[in-house]
Amino acid sequence: MDKQTITIYDVAREANVSMATVSRVVNGNPNVKPATRQKVLKVIEKLDYRPNAVARGLASKKTTTVGVVIPDITNIYFSTLARGIDDVATMYKYNIILANSDENSQKEVSTLDNLFAKQVDGLIYMGHNISDAVRAEFSRAKTPIVLAGSVDPDEQVASVNIDYKAAVKEAVALLLQKGAKKIAFVSSAMNQPINGEYRLSGYTEALAEAKIPYDGNLVFETDYNFRAGEALWDKLQAVGADAAYVADDELSVGVLDGALDHGAKVPKDFQIITSNNTFLTEITRPQLSSISQPLYDIGAVAMRLLTKMMNKETVSEKTVLLPFTITERSSTKK
Rank of each mutant, 00 (worst) to 15 (best):
T74I: 12
I326K: 11
R56K: 09
G127D: 10
P30N: 15
E313M: 14
M126V: 01
G229A: 08
N217P: 09
V239D: 02
L256T: 09
K334A: 13
F324C: 08
M91G: 08
A189E: 15
G263N: 14
N52M: 04
L147N: 14
G179Y: 05
Y296F: 15
Y296L: 12
A171R: 11
G179F: 10
H262T: 12
S131P: 04
A53Q: 08
Y164V: 03
G28H: 04
I44M: 09
T21R: 00
G202Y: 05
T325W: 10
D87M: 07
T36I: 04
N217G: 14
I6S: 01
M19I: 08
L175W: 09
T325E: 13
K333W: 00
V168T: 06
T274G: 06
K211H: 15
I8K: 01
P51N: 01
F270G: 02
L207T: 02
K334I: 05
P193R: 13
E45V: 02
E317N: 13
G57Q: 02
Q287W: 07
N191K: 11
K165N: 14
Y198I: 01
N161Q: 14
R37K: 15
D113I: 06
D257L: 13
A173F: 07
T281I: 15
L81D: 05
L305H: 13
L81V: 04
S110P: 03
M19N: 01
Y224N: 14
E155P: 03
K169P: 05
M303L: 13
S150N: 00
S187R: 02
V246M: 07
G196L: 13
I283P: 03
F220W: 10
Y92K: 12
L236D: 03
I183K: 00
A264K: 10
D86E: 15
I273K: 04
I76Y: 05
A133C: 04
K61N: 14
S79N: 00
Q237Y: 04
T143C: 08
E313Y: 13
R135I: 02
K334N: 10
S331M: 11
M91E: 15
A243R: 11
V146R: 01
K118V: 02
D121P: 03
I130V: 15
